[in-house]
Design a protein around this nucleic acid. Structure first.
Lengths: 225, 225
DNA sequence: CCTACCCTTACAGCTAACTTACGCCTTTCT
DNA sequence: AGAAAGGCGTAAGTTAGCTGTAAGGGTAGG
């Protein structure tokens, strides 16, 4: 899962980047609306965390602009102002959630989880493919309800694949989903992850199909379970 | 386990904080409804002890507000008023228990234990993992019914792990469960607790698994029970 | 048959977690 | 009250295993 933080206060921004990074999100950070707009158009994000008070283009304008373009990306608004009018305006413009500073990281993280879940799944049930289940909140994968041990990278990869089960995902998309701008991985890193993950989920009836030249696709095994 | 006390009478509040603190709960205290709401949204509590007569937002309003948000946190109501109407209203609003002042600390502590047990476990069975048992009420751990000596920190850690057995618990979550606002622990304090606890429960068939980068998980040993 | 593209294995660096030791503080016993 | 004991948290050094790269072999498509 990949997040964009739009926040000009560097103290807050750094805290968010660190905390959400520790929660296994890939996190990018920009400091004003124009950079944010460019980032959203250039890359695929699952969620934008947006401060309202920004230079060059304020958060309301950015949000309004996105929705006029019919961009459905989930947006969580941060603001120091507590008045009802602001809140109503933001929600009317299409914000998905609203949090007033000062806030605690735990609550932010909970809301982030909820938003991603809502936007991707519409529910909080564990993801399932064949006998393979993934409990996203607890970062716990299991086959026939027997927990299996996956590393952090492997869990993130599996989550990415399961979120778009049955659809082809390009290696670049996987790369973007796992890494932020700071990181840069070699050509075949994804191939290695897929290989390791395949070995671990092999007995489950879930299969990672290679689509040569295009990417990978997660599917239930075609032969009987 | 972490509790929030919402009580404007400082004499009572201090008594509760001290008594429950001695019972090894992490206890925070606020004096009105607005502070309480913010605290509940910012931090994770296992139980709220709520006085009905409060400034700025009274206990009923707070409770009603929480339940409208579908917040499932356990709430124990304290009040000086004894009339049935109040009691019925509180329980209809979703209070889990109700205690009339003046009360005895022992009874309060018993109800607190019961509520936490009910909300966390859904039953009254003692916590068990392999041959390791934990009697939450008496803060007593035993292996094959032989009591073992654990320090307060160790018992609290074990309780936290056993309450979510089989699920991954992040170090930050453990930290929150053990500490209130006043405390601040260093980076590797949790690692040291885990190390000490592991040495003591090692012979029991309960195992604390490390999931690198994500947290810890309590499980029964994989070889025969 | 050739060329991308992918699979597989092996290895080395690095960071998170483990382990030990020490000093402070609280509790308890005399 | 003074002393002894043990719990508690920090710091420092060590270990372990995840991660990413590289290298070599295989395969599908042209």
């Amino acid at each position: 899962m990949r997040l964009l933080i739009v926040e000009d206060d560097l103290v807050i921004a750094n805290g968010l980047v660190r905390a959400l990074g520790q929660s296994q999100y890939a996190v990018d950070h920009v400091t004003d609306g124009k950079q944010a707009l460019r980032a959203i158009q250039d890359d695929v994000y699952d969620l934008v965390i947006l401060d309202l008070g920004l230079p060059t283009m304020d958060g309301m304008q950015l949000l309004s602009h996105l929705r006029q373009q019919a961009n459905p990306i989930a947006v969580l608004i941060l603001t120091a102002r507590e008045d009802v009018a602001t809140r109503v305006q933001a929600l009317d413009l299409g914000a998905d959630d609203f949090l007033t500073k000062p806030f605690h990281l735990e609550e932010l993280e909970a809301r982030v989880r909820a938003l991603i879940r809502r936007s991707k799944l519409g529910n909080n049930l564990p993801l399932q493919c064949g006998n393979l289940k993934l409990d996203v909140a607890n970062k716990l994968a299991s086959i026939n309800d027997q927990p299996i041990t996956l590393s952090a990278r492997e869990i993130n990869l599996l989550e990415t694949l399961m979120m778009r089960m049955g659809k082809i995902i390009a290696k670049e998309q996987i790369m973007e989903s796992l890494c932020n701008w700071d990181e840069t991985l070699g050509d075949n890193a994804i191939e290695v992850y897929v290989h390791r993950l395949r070995k671990k989920i092999e007995p489950s009836g879930a299969h990672i199909r290679t689509v040569r030249g295009l990417g990978y696709m997660l599917e239930a095994a075609h032969n009987g379970v």
